[in-house]
Design a protein around this nucleic acid. Structure first.
Lengths: 219, 219
DNA sequence: AAATTAATTTAGATAAGTCTAAAAATAAAT
DNA sequence: ATTTATTTTTAGACTTATCTAAATTAATTT
């Protein structure tokens, strides 16, 4: 089945919205993610339902079919592998690669992405710590431990970030926090749930909004 | 100016047709190159003329403007650099990369292609021996010596191929001829202009059609 | 439970790129 | 120099993906 870039983008959006939201994704949610109008989304969803890529009942939202999910994961795989290429090989910063990967993920080829994966020596995570699905579409999801849940006095390693938006990435750069950074929770402020954290180089105060967006592994 | 992939493809086609044919390219020629109908070409040409990318007078064919040419060369540059990447880094064969490069050449980014060029260590030619335009759009064209013009008894190196079509590339593979191959012209057959040629490994008969498509440097 | 608000869908319109069929212009042939 | 053939252009239609505005359904509030 040969899908247009637009169709692929819808599948990808539905896929990630299914994770961050309910099982049945609403038209408006998709329209916000894809930056179109809800009416356009309805049209496209009906088209995707025709092709058996989504389950759809009027007014009930959508979910991906097995095939739809498979395709969505393939796109995620491509996106993340291209991001690794851009950062590891072309020396881009992690906050510069999203737009390019959004285009590269739609390149059509039976073999390209597997060759790229081999060339990159089978990375398991992209530059933001997100896991890269394997050829069969299996993903090892994060264990979901956020910095906010680390106890006072305990240390942890940053293994991923939930919100990979540009401003957030730039902010982490400023704080000199990156994947692999070791953080020790010195104290927590019950009032606003902020925490005082010690990095390798400095002590910094981290708001709850930040600490809820950092995946960590406790040490 | 943000061009669509389709517009870019028209510019690229006009660019290469200008070289292999007359200065003013006809509608039908373009339609054959792009595999559309002549009427579609007329529509698109008028659109490109509106944008000052081509010179166009009804029934007189088209030629690229300075800007149009600049953009066309940029696309050629991207195409060839991506081909180098695919062959040198991902281990594709030279007959497998065209379709992928056709897609990759349209990836939009201010910096990507220059970073890629650096990563590839500033190659001067693509896997088919075609010269890679530099950042400013300068190209060193072939000196245009074809195998067919090499005198009997003289040797030469293969430095490029004129027709990079799939079947031709596969045919050269079968003959074990590649860029850098050294060929010695043993004899010429006046009847059909074929020639007997000695490679490193064998003696082969080469038709005029082939020898007219191989760029060589005389030794 | 009825009324109001919000979300979703339908209907009709638009832009890009293509097509077919017909008309116009150029080129070739007698 | 006319006629014939070929090429090019125009006109109108189709597809994909989008939009606005109106209609419908679902959710909330009173």
């Amino acid at each position: 089945m040969m899908l247009s870039q637009t169709e692929e983008n819808y599948l990808k959006a539905i896929y990630s919205l299914t994770y961050t939201n309910s099982n049945n994704v609403s038209t408006t949610l998709i329209s916000e993610a894809i930056k179109t109008k809800a009416s356009s989304v309805t049209d496209m969803i009906q088209k995707l339902a025709e092709k058996d890529l989504v389950h759809y009942k009027k007014y009930q939202g959508v979910s991906l079919t097995k095939i739809g999910q498979k395709i969505a994961v393939e796109i995620v795989r491509k996106h993340r592998l291209w991001e690794v290429f851009l950062v590891n090989k072309l020396n881009y910063n992690w906050d510069e690669v999203h737009q390019m990967a959004e285009q590269l993920e739609h390149i059509k080829s039976e073999t390209l992405i597997d060759k790229l994966e081999a060339f990159l020596e089978f990375p398991t995570h992209d530059p933001h710590g997100d896991p890269i699905p394997d050829k069969e579409g299996n993903i090892k999801h994060h264990n979901n431990t956020m910095l906010s849940s680390v106890e006072t006095g305990k240390s942890c390693v940053v293994i991923g970030i939930k919100d990979s938006s540009d401003p957030f990435l730039k902010f982490l750069d400023k704080l000199q926090i990156q994947l692999g950074s070791i953080l020790k929770v010195i104290s927590k402020e019950p009032f606003d749930n902020s925490m005082l954290v010690e990095t390798e180089t400095a002590s910094i105060s981290i708001s709850n909004q930040i600490s809820k967006n950092l995946f960590v592994k406790k040490l």
